[in-house]
């Protein structure tokens, strides 16, 4: 596997864009590292990758890496990516988005991208909170947990992102954590190789906001928690619902083959041209 220094030299805009804006202990960099290792394993050309994001801490990821990078508006990474993918189907389009970006303001785009099955890989960095604005509750903040807009406890129930995207029609769903970097790398690899709309949900930590207000400790304690609660899918299949209480099932949760949007559109073009509707 590629070493850290080689990874930085090969993929980062290291002489232009550092230091980064993320807090000490943040999980975003670790996830980004797994993504880059996946890309390196797949031997993809940097010119062939478009890396698209929305707004928030995760939204800042593209600026640091040496691909075709597009930092869009809040919640809209997926429709931007959809237009780009249709214009350039040969590009590998990867979207980085946070839990608020993808399931609150961008929730509508997320479910429709799933339904369309367009060949885009979406990595959802789920840290249960709006980090950049200082720690407000998000659609994935657990019920009863605190945030700076629900200091007495969250009375909303959270989305289960992986279940949501599966129900909406995603054809690949994987989940991992920022602790399980090797598993995460392998899932992202499979997601990129998958033809269709793939989602990788990554459970991660925000020690600065979510960790602090919920007294979860620092980054190390939060990573240890991820290690504790994660259960691989195969192991989970043998566990009872009681045993799975409070656990997070990881691994490739779903993989199915369905017609991909761009490929289907190509058949529309062929049909229209044979009918000469121009």
């Amino acid at each position: 596997m590629i070493s850290n220094s080689e990874l930085v030299k090969k993929y980062f805009r290291y002489n232009k864009k550092f230091p980064h804006i993320w807090c000490p202990g943040c999980g975003i960099g670790t996830i980004l590292g797994s993504m880059l290792r996946a890309i390196d394993d797949l031997e993809l050309e940097k010119d062939d990758i478009a890396f698209v994001s929305g707004i928030g801490c995760t939204g800042r990821a593209p600026v640091y890496v040496d691909f075709n990078t597009l930092h869009t508006t809040h919640g809209r990474a997926l429709p931007f990516a959809t237009g780009l993918k249709l214009a350039r189907p040969e590009l590998k389009v990867i979207v980085a988005t946070g839990d608020g970006d993808s399931t609150a303001i961008g929730g509508n785009h997320l479910i429709h991208a799933c339904r369309r099955n367009i060949d885009i890989t979406t990595i959802i960095f789920n840290n249960y909170i709006y980090g950049m604005t200082g720690g407000q509750y998000s659609p994935t903040t657990p019920h009863g947990d605190k945030a700076y807009t629900c200091k007495l406890g969250n009375i909303e129930r959270p989305f289960n992102i992986s279940a949501l995207v599966e129900a909406a029609g995603a054809t690949f769903v994987g989940r991992s954590t920022s602790y399980h970097t090797l598993q995460l790398k392998n899932i992202i690899k499979r997601a990129i190789q998958h033809k269709g709309f793939s989602v990788v949900e990554v459970i991660t930590h925000c020690p600065t906001t979510y960790g602090r207000i919920n007294r979860k400790g620092g980054a190390v304690e939060m990573l240890e928690w991820q290690k504790e609660v994660a259960v691989d899918r195969e192991k989970a299949a043998k566990m009872s619902p009681e045993e799975l209480e409070g656990k997070i099932v990881t691994g490739i949760l779903l993989e199915r083959e369905l017609p991909e949007f761009c490929e289907q559109y190509d058949t529309i073009i062929e049909k229209a041209q044979s009918l000469d509707k121009g």
């Binding site: 698209v52 237009g83 214009a87």
Partner: peptide, 11 residues
């Protein structure tokens, strides 16, 4: 958003 993405793709 989609037309911006497509325009960046050269359309």
């Amino acid at each position: 958003a989609a037309i911006i993405g497509a325009s960046i793709g050269g359309c």
